[in-house]
């Protein structure tokens, strides 16, 4: 279980997360919606230990990310896919994928590479294992980014707007892979502006507004007139997103 309890985070005088509570159970796909600047990325960065909390607690399978000794374990259990891919430019696609399994999980190189190649094949990049990031399209880079996260066999996959830097065609090639992962039961925390897609794959949708988690509902309920839509801010957000 991934648990966010009463988390507060401020940058100087600016409060970005204001008492956020969120629980993600194994097998669930939880989408996080919210307008720009509402704190979605910050929440993800708190979960994977890139930001220190001002208050509250985050645990990944009971490992507290605020405790340096437990953070390593917590990080082994969660994998992050970044908006701007964040690949290592001096390494091939395959090396990007195998670095952490070899160095952190101490997997034998040959095994890690075989698994890396299998992952690349799954996302349709079996023949690009030796390409450098700059030789790949945005969509291909993001697929490598997903493989890099999956190679660590995480229990929780954290995805922060993983398609927002991609054009529509590339977006759909990445979303297809995520849909498949969701179907296979991968646990995901999915920050996105792709409302329709979130609706298709999520079990639950949460809505963040100015650092406060306003709504946390099962997907159908979220889009129901007497559910999420009953919240003026949610209705406003959804109608605006649909117009764009």
């Amino acid at each position: 279980m991934l648990k966010v309890e009463n988390v507060k985070k401020a940058f100087g005088p600016v409060t970005v997360l204001d008492g956020v509570n969120l629980t993600v159970n194994p097998g669930e796909v939880v989408s996080i919606l919210g307008s720009s600047g509402s704190g979605k990325s910050t929440l993800i960065r708190c979960i994977n230990g890139l930001e220190k909390l001002n208050a509250g607690k985050i645990t990944v399978d009971d490992f507290d990310v605020s405790k340096p000794k437990e953070l390593a374990e917590a990080r082994k259990r969660s994998g992050t896919v970044f908006q701007l891919f964040n690949l290592y430019p001096h390494m091939t696609a395959l090396q990007n994928i195998t670095l952490a399994p070899i160095e952190v999980l101490k997997r034998p190189k040959a095994e890690a590479e075989a698994e890396g190649r299998a992952l690349l094949t799954q996302v349709g990049l079996g023949d690009r294992a030796d390409a450098y990031p700059a030789q790949l399209s945005g969509g291909q880079r993001q697929r490598v980014g997903i493989c890099r996260a999956l190679a660590m066999k995480p229990r929780y996959l954290l995805l922060d707007e993983v398609t927002s830097a991609l054009d529509p065609e590339m977006t759909s090639e990445v979303l297809d892979i995520l849909a498949k992962l969701a179907k296979d039961g991968t646990t995901m925390v999915f920050v996105t502006h792709e409302i329709e897609f979130a609706r298709q794959i999520s079990n639950r949708i949460v809505f963040l507004e100015k650092g406060v988690l306003l709504v946390d509902l099962p997907t159908e309920k979220f889009f129901a007139a007497d559910g999420g839509l009953a919240q003026p801010r949610v209705a406003q957000f959804l109608s605006k997103m649909r117009k764009d």
Partner: peptide, 27 residues
Amino acid sequence: DQVEAARVFGLSRWQVLRHVIAPQAAA
């Protein structure tokens, strides 16, 4: 961003230096 990615995947500061920073810094 690359350094953050490596940290998130659990590499230690030394491993980040050795595998991510040093090869690129050398070039």
